[in-house]
Every structure is written in C-alpha cells, then in structure tokens.
Amino acid sequence: MASANLLFFVLMLSSVRVGRSSESLFKLKCQPAVGVIGQTTHISCSIEFYTKPKPVVINTVALTRSGEKKSCFTIQPLENIRIGDSRFDVEKEPSLQLHNTAISDEGEYRYLIRTNLGQDQVRFTINVTAKYSNPIITSVPKEIVNDGAADLYCNASGGYPAGTIHWFDQSNTNWTKSATLQSTQGNDGLFTLSSKLSFQKIDSLWAPFRCVVLNSKYEEEEGGTTSTLEIKDNPENSPSTSSTVNNSIAGVVVIGSLIVGLLIVLLFKRRRNKRAVPMEHTYPEEEKDLNEPVYKKAAEAEEIFTV
C-alpha cells in the first residue's frame, strides 16, 4: 500500500514537472493597442522562447474581456471552429486585429493561446479615438469693431475622448484662461466641443485669432483653424468720418473767407463815401463856381467816389 502511494506521488510530481516545462517553453507578449473608430485596430503580439526556438502550432486562441468569464472571441484553427465576435481575427499568429472598431471595444482584455509547446496568457488594453472635425470660428457681432465688445466662438465635433480647445492671437499669446469650454457627449458616444472667448474691448492688433483642438493627452490634432474675421476701425475714427469733418471745416473756411472779403469791400466803399461828403458841404451851392479849378477838382472827385 505504501509502495502504491509512493508510485502515485511520483507520477503526479512528474506530470506537474512536465506541465510546467511545457508551459514555460515560451512567453506571450502583447502591446497596448490604439484604435480609431470605424477603422481596423492592429493588436501586436509576439512569442518569446525560453529555449531554442521551435515550430509553434496554435490550436486554440481565446480572448476575454476583463471582468467577464465568457470569452468574446475563440478560434481553433485546426478544427476550423470560430466562436464570438466576428470582427476579431488572427492577423499573423499570434497577433490579432479588430475590424470596424467601436467605442464599446475600449477596455482591458485577457488573451490566451494553447500550442504544441504549451500555453500562456497575457493582458493588454485597447484605447479608442476619433478625430474631431476641423474647428470653425464665428463671432457676435458678425462685424467686429476695434475697441468694441465681441464674443468669439470655436466649435469642433465628432471626437473621442473628450478634448479641449485653446485660443491664440497673432503673436501666439494663449488666451485660453479667458475662455469658457463646454463639452457635450452625443448618443453615439462622440463629443462636441464649444469654446467662447469674450472681449469688452477688442484690439485689431491681436487679430487674426486661431483656435486649436487638443486631444485627451493635450496633443494638438492636425488642422486647427485661423480666424478670417475682420476687425474694422471704430466709426468715430474711421476715414469717412474724418473726411466729412475735414470737408465741413473747409466749407466753413471758404464761406468765412467770402464773408470777410465782402465785409472788407463794404468797409472800403463806406470810407470812400465818407471822404466825398465833406467836399460837398465845404462849398455851398450858391458859392460854387464850377469854372474855378478848385470846384472843378471837387466835382471830379465826387463823381469818382460815387460810381
């Protein structure tokens, strides 16, 4: 009886050693994957041998989401058996690929393979992203006036995960701290970003403004946008107003000059008339002798100044 128990113990020990030896011939490794919504995600995996590499024949592949007991994808190539999500596939043993990636695919997975050299399993994560649309800038009012109040808006949609928007002026000064951001997630899981930058007095020297979309890692996405909004001069200081004022002043000057000239002419004529009056009264009618030289000159002078 004792010998039988000893034999059984030896057999169990040898089987454990064989099992461990078989499982320790290689190690499975997988890199974290980043997928884009609607596209194919590649999950890069490899086999690292502890001993001299040998031909590997995979007979079972099983992929299970963390927290779940049932695998979401299982394949047995030798038996041509495939179970679970058909979007998963073995790309190049032991790497995987996921077609038509969705937000719901994001998470951690447990990947198990069984081969002719034993089995091993590893955990990896899938992160999902979606690029935002090119941001668009609008303003209220539509026509911005220098030194006037203005609200600038920047909108981008269709992105994942939630990102942020930064504002820059023409000198690359960051105005983001003065802006307010609103992030809204739709029924499809995608986000819409809306940022508002307000000014009580905007300066045309700051233009043009541009808004840039940053992803969840604060990395700038390709694209961005630059404001094409024009900032007009204040109407009070506009060239048209200045021209009107100048024309008005010029008109006043011309009219004033004409009035002054007319007054000078009238004053000159009045003085001439005053000079002629004493000569009339100096020589009474009854004492005038028009043939005398004195009276003759007076008459001529009177005729000249009364013209």
Rank of each mutant, 00 (worst) to 15 (best):
R123L: 08
E219D: 14
E236H: 09
A298G: 10
G261A: 12
R65N: 03
I264Y: 10
G224S: 11
F209Q: 05
K196P: 04
K92L: 09
N146R: 00
L181W: 08
Y153C: 00
F191L: 04
L190S: 02
K196L: 14
T138P: 08
L263M: 13
P94Q: 00
S86Q: 10
L266E: 10
L112C: 02
V213F: 07
S14N: 14
G224K: 03
Q170V: 15
S133Y: 02
S71T: 07
P32T: 07
L152R: 01
S46T: 07
L258H: 05
R272Q: 15
A4Q: 13
F191I: 04
S257R: 06
K92P: 01
V122S: 01
K142C: 06
V18F: 15
I249P: 05
P235G: 06
N246S: 12
P141K: 08
N291S: 14
I43T: 01
S216N: 13
T129P: 03
V140K: 14
P278C: 00
A2I: 11
E236A: 13
F73N: 08
N172Y: 14
R270F: 14
S104C: 02
F9Y: 12
F26R: 02
I259D: 04
L263P: 05
K196Y: 02
I165F: 04
A33G: 01
L117F: 10
G67S: 01
F209G: 08
G256H: 09
N116P: 12
I75H: 10
S248Q: 06
S133R: 02
N146P: 06
G163L: 00
R210V: 05
S257G: 15
D188W: 09
T225F: 06
V245F: 09
T51Y: 11
P239D: 07
E287G: 04
P141I: 04
N291R: 13
P284N: 02
R114K: 13
L197P: 11
G256W: 09
I264F: 15
T176F: 04
V57M: 00
D85I: 00
S71D: 11
L197A: 03
H281M: 12
T244W: 11
Q76P: 03
T74I: 10
L96F: 10
K269R: 14
P55S: 02
Q39V: 01
R270K: 13
V277H: 07
Q170G: 05
S240K: 13
G189I: 08
A62R: 13
V254N: 08
R65K: 15
E108H: 06
P53K: 03
